[in-house]
Design a binder for these strands. Sequence first.
DNA 1: TCAAACTCTTGATCTATATCAAGTTTTTAC
DNA 2: GTAAAAACTTGATATAGATCAAGAGTTTGA
Lengths: 192, 192
Amino acid sequence: MYEIFQKYLEEKTELTQAESERIQSFAIIKKLRKRQYLLQEGDVWKYDAFITQGCVRTYTVDEKGSEHVNSFSIENWWTGDRESLMMQQPSRFNIDAIEDTELVLFTHENFELLCKEIPAFNNMVNTILQRSFIAAQNRIQASLTLTAEEKYLNFVNKYPGFASRIPQAMIASYLGMTPETLSRIRKQTAKK
Amino acid sequence: MYEIFQKYLEEKTELTQAESERIQSFAIIKKLRKRQYLLQEGDVWKYDAFITQGCVRTYTVDEKGSEHVNSFSIENWWTGDRESLMMQQPSRFNIDAIEDTELVLFTHENFELLCKEIPAFNNMVNTILQRSFIAAQNRIQASLTLTAEEKYLNFVNKYPGFASRIPQAMIASYLGMTPETLSRIRKQTAKK
DNA sequence: TCAAACTCTTGATCTATATCAAGTTTTTAC
DNA sequence: GTAAAAACTTGATATAGATCAAGAGTTTGA
């Protein structure tokens, strides 16, 4: 499955053969069965992780035991807990697989080495981070300004395909509403 | 007021005398009176902006004319619209001064030039971006999991000092609640 | 220095969404 | 293939926070 990451790299950046091989030499392939954890609350996250196949969710569990989905990541996206990674502190998040999933992992030391050695790789990583930040800003904006129905329509529009492969209750959680509310909204909007 | 930025640079990074002077050569000093705009909706944002003194808010205005505060930035922080800057598209945001404010601006071309020329500067910028992303993630998490009262307490705790210099109605907007609700929460928590 | 313009508070009422409680349908695993 | 588990729907009711309205403080600028 490394070819998928390879292809991603080719699209996003320009690398020499040697650089490309250098990157591959550090890659760790990991497979997760549905429901299996990539990261558990309390553990320190130590990787940079790219998904080549499948889908994971990042979420917290509150005192009452309810789950709050922070994000979904599918193939051709990155996942992990940047705060835990950067601060080397136990994560507040859980990450588990919604589907059988395959990933390419790099330990953070190796990843930083690659960033240092390969300027094009470093630039790519920075661009991704910028886009992630912009996406986070937009999500904050949406959560402040939109109604429950608008949030759902915005989500479907922004991430077509997600709605069909992710259980509704998880989407509801991601959008900050109950599964019942989402169910009623879907019924409503289906009519129109 | 450039000395404040100079001091910030010294704290965050290691620069040679020449690099330091190179950076200063591109700096544009800008002053804003209270209520004056730094960016208006529809304009394309073209700078990287550091606040040396004062406080600005970034917000949108919806169809009904209500304002939604996306963020506050005070001295020793950066401000601007990264999405507009990166995509070179008209901004959805307004940025204006809550207090008389002084900034150091760099046109984005110059800023990128500095990033290219000075690796230490580039690293600093990336670190800031990472932290911004983490802060955005935490804000999303808070908006999903906390009650109105918890959001306010979390805000006061995280940004001590902000509550006293920013009008309550703007804080309420930032936290995604009405000014009336925030007023009642403050009354409640003052009792305890 | 004082009137106008903000800013904050308080009360009454309303509403979007949550919660609780059954059902029904779909998926999973042996 | 079928029983158990998971996912989704629907209805009744509750509630956090919104909205509307008015008054009290506070700031601002001529």
